[in-house]
Design a protein around this nucleic acid. Sequence first.
DNA 1: GGGACGATTCAATCTATCATGAACTGTCCG
DNA 2: CGGACAGTTCATGATAGATTGAATCGTCCC
Lengths: 222, 222
Amino acid sequence: MEQLERIASLIGDASRMKMLWSLLDGRAYTATELSIVADASRQSTSMHLSKLVDAGLLKVNSQGRHKYYSFARQEIAYAIEAMSVLMPPPTQVSPVKPQPIKYCRTCYDHMAGSIGVKLLDRLVERHYLILEDDTPAITETGKKFFHDLGIDTMELLSLKRPFARACLDWSERRFHLAGSLGNVLLKKLLEEDWVRRVANSRALVITAKGKQCFLEVLGLAV
Amino acid sequence: MEQLERIASLIGDASRMKMLWSLLDGRAYTATELSIVADASRQSTSMHLSKLVDAGLLKVNSQGRHKYYSFARQEIAYAIEAMSVLMPPPTQVSPVKPQPIKYCRTCYDHMAGSIGVKLLDRLVERHYLILEDDTPAITETGKKFFHDLGIDTMELLSLKRPFARACLDWSERRFHLAGSLGNVLLKKLLEEDWVRRVANSRALVITAKGKQCFLEVLGLAV
DNA sequence: GGGACGATTCAATCTATCATGAACTGTCCG
DNA sequence: CGGACAGTTCATGATAGATTGAATCGTCCC
């Protein structure tokens, strides 16, 4: 009960509500970006965000000098959505802002962009990987899956390099698969010609074969 | 957006949250009762309640010198529930307080108690009646339904007495059917021996026949 | 009528909390 | 290294909003 009051009062602030509202799209935003959408100073935004993190509503990921904030759990989004239906005049959903999508590209040595994000989402959805505190761990069925793709996960686990990491994507603002698993997966997909590198660019193109394989193997329409 | 902030800030107050939390059981409470659960003075409670009513979160029904407050719409309860799952330690649902149920009894000349409440609920659920601003209106299928029970609703509609009213029940704190329709319905059920009066009391007992009929005719297990 | 009681209103406080400005930490990059 | 930038911390105001006491209104019931 006391907890509920605390959470309620946290949500019951105009600035914080604006931030939470922005985060509803499921992406991660930096503190400065949130200060802009909330129309508040950087200092007070920092204060608000730390309160939200303390209460377990948001989580934060450091990426260089940036800090990316996102919902700590799905339930937060549900609660905000439930509240939004209380608004008397449902003045239509705010127009979707067209956003330049970085569809498919590499991030250092692994796949990023919306494909990278969808890929990780799907791997988790199918329980090939399990996210533990944003660090992906492989399951038994996952080992089998990667083995069928021709990837020996046992070997990767013995490397010094982290086996798998969830890397925050600067364009999608969501996680994609990094670490040695992400690296090997990219190499495999290039090798199998699911995707090809574009000259002098980090962009990738998906081949016709890749399109079909993503659908067949992972149920991903790309 | 602005509306959402307003609603959020309304919910984000300890006193108001306590009141809303109490109202989650779907019953109506008086201002004084809510001031007790919220541990606030009568004056400030009154202020809080008027704010909640103005915002369309609560509705109020006057009953003599009492004012009964309850959720204006179901969505309010959903939102509160959605928030409640955000509490970090799900310290079990608060123990259900045993409440003395006034199961089945009359209220002046119609049925009240939990049966009366369930009855109205079911009639509305089956679209025999439609609640418009807490005043029940009869539908075409409703006319047929009551006709099959041997009740001529056309005749009732021509009387001076209000055809149907939603009467707030002091024990259930929810609405039951009053007005001439409620009156005739009780008379019919007594006549048909679904229920019987208890001597020197407003209590009613449901007969074996009544039990079966409530189930068959209205799908009500009593 | 008259007292008891539920509920509200109003003006006068009081207080929790948000915003602000200045200073500081840590990262990036030429 | 040194400047630019992201983010935070701290002490100091500023203020919205809650609380309180006194007064008022309406209903109930003897």
